[in-house]
Amino acid sequence: MPSNPSIKNVIFDLGGVILDLDVNQTYQQFAARSGKTVDQLKAKAANVTFFEDFERGLISDTAFRDQLRLFLEIDLSDEQIDNGWNAMLLDLPVARLDLLKKIRLNFRIFLLSNTNNIHLQTFNSIVRTVIGDQLFGNYFERDYYSHLLGMRKPDREIFQYVLHQNELKAEETLFLDDSVLNLQGAATLGIQTFHIQHPDQLFSLFNEA
């Protein structure tokens, strides 16, 4: 278990922490279709806002696809866009879900994910193939998705919202994420943080290796 005895609550990121994630898979698919390199697409992505807008729920699926067509400078079908966009979403190992059940015996646990409607629909399909009709949200006390809140990590307001909604003390809360920027956002509120560099670190962190 986490070595700090003051920790009573754990907030988990989803992609790269519980769900295997490889963003390069999406870049590679779109690079192949657009004739651009992965590096060119990454550099271009750093100068647009519609990806973050989609994660905040500020634009619709249709508007996102239209923006992505302009971004790639190629007229792809909705299906081609969705397939490429979802390519980054990989496996959901049952062992990690079993670990969540054990962690919940000792901590209040929550999920906080930067995501969007297209990804969430696909993730729910992945969940159904792994655990059937069980609800993924049942593994947590509460699960939060950025596009449904109108906020995203690393902004302070989304962490403040989760703390306030659940009457959590920042100093008693541990946040696990694969993004250093997101961890820095949480740390500004006094939340304890841990950088997950590979999802299987969860097992050693919670002494289940």
Rank of each mutant, 00 (worst) to 15 (best):
N9S: 09
L14S: 09
L14M: 15
G15F: 05
V17T: 14
V17F: 03
I18W: 05
L19C: 11
F30Q: 04
F30H: 01
A31R: 02
R33I: 14
D39P: 07
Q40H: 13
A43Q: 14
K44Q: 15
A46T: 14
A46Q: 15
N47T: 15
T49P: 06
T49D: 13
F51H: 11
F51C: 08
E52Q: 14
F54R: 00
E55K: 00
A63F: 02
R65A: 02
D66E: 13
R69G: 01
L70F: 04
L70Y: 01
F71I: 05
E73R: 02
D75P: 03
L76I: 03
S77T: 13
S77K: 00
D82C: 12
G84H: 02
M88K: 01
M88W: 01
L90E: 06
D91W: 01
D98Y: 05
K101Y: 00
I103V: 13
R104T: 11
R104M: 10
R104W: 02
L105D: 03
L105H: 07
I109Y: 03
L111S: 04
S113D: 03
N117S: 11
H119N: 11
T122Q: 14
T122M: 14
F123A: 12
F123E: 05
V127F: 10
R128I: 12
T129A: 15
I131W: 07
G132C: 13
G132I: 09
G132V: 08
Q134C: 07
L135D: 10
G137K: 06
G137M: 09
F140D: 10
F140G: 08
F140T: 10
R142G: 12
D143L: 10
D143K: 08
G150Y: 04
G150M: 05
K153F: 07
K153V: 11
P154D: 12
R156I: 13
I158Y: 06
F159V: 08
F159P: 03
Q160I: 12
L163Q: 01
H164R: 06
E171F: 13
E171D: 11
E172D: 06
T173I: 08
L174H: 03
L174A: 09
F175I: 09
F175K: 02
F175T: 08
L176Q: 05
Q184F: 11
A186V: 12
T188P: 04
G190S: 07
Q192H: 07
F194L: 12
F194A: 09
D200R: 11
L202P: 06
F203I: 06
N207R: 04
N207C: 14
A209H: 09
